[in-house]
């Protein structure tokens, strides 16, 4: 008896189950970092408060906006290809890629400012966590961009249609997850009361 009946329109159950299980591992990967954050924020409350003031809230907020918008564009892309709109999918993937580049560029500006000011991972526990968490998140953004370039290449060759769009859908789920991690990172690192 198979649970693998085709979903109404979209990815088969196996692909969906696979990506959700993968996202569960990602959650635990970041979970340990959040645990470390919780512990050190309790034991070093004063340090965390002082150091977080050094981060640029405006750039952080801007990046939140950029990444949220990219989640919107890829969601529109999925809705588009489900209706068979190949051209709109390509536009949406390109926009998502551009926004991801924008996110990393802003991150680059922030990090180079930090390095210029002499704030490194070894500086203290707050910056150690800041660089580890945003760094690991940045790697996930990069990985997502790699996948989207591949999707764009496939879309260019007309591989996706209303009937077959599994890779687009599961990449979308991954991208929303990456977005979600940032939504937690932003207040925890930039907006400590």
């Amino acid at each position: 008896m198979s649970d693998n009946h085709e979903a109404p329109n979209g990815a088969p159950v196996s692909a969906r189950l696979g990506i959700w299980a993968f996202l569960a591992t990602e959650l635990l990967l970041f979970g340990a970092l959040f645990t470390a954050y919780a512990q050190f924020r309790i034991t070093h409350a004063e340090l965390f408060h002082q150091e977080h003031l050094k981060l640029n809230r405006v750039l952080g907020a801007l990046n939140t906006l950029v990444l949220l918008t990219s989640s919107l564009t890829i969601a529109i892309g999925i809705a588009a290809i489900r209706r068979g709109l190949q051209k709109l999918l390509k536009v949406c993937l390109s926009l998502t890629l551009a926004l991801a580049c924008g996110f990393l560029f802003i991150k680059y500006l922030e990090w180079s400012h930090d390095f210029h000011m002499g704030w490194f991972p070894r500086t203290n526990l707050f910056f150690g966590l800041y660089f580890m968490m945003t760094g690991l998140h940045g790697l996930h953004v990069l990985a997502g961009m790699g996948v989207m370039i591949w999707l764009l290449y496939k879309a260019q060759r007309g591989s996706f249609s209303a009937e077959y769009n599994t890779p687009v859908e599961i990449t979308g789920l991954y991208w929303h997850f990456v977005d979600l991690v940032w939504i937690y990172l932003f207040p925890l690192l930039y907006l400590i009361g």
């Binding site: 635990l28 340990a32 526990l125 150690g128 690991l136």
Partner: peptide, 25 residues
């Protein structure tokens, strides 16, 4: 395997970062 292994993964990453970047977690 799916739920516990990522935690040792990040632990090894943190251990490596501890050695390479001199973080003091």
């Amino acid at each position: 395997q799916v739920l516990s292994t990522p935690v040792i993964g990040i632990t090894f990453l943190l251990l490596a970062a501890e050695r390479v970047f001199g973080i003091g977690f």
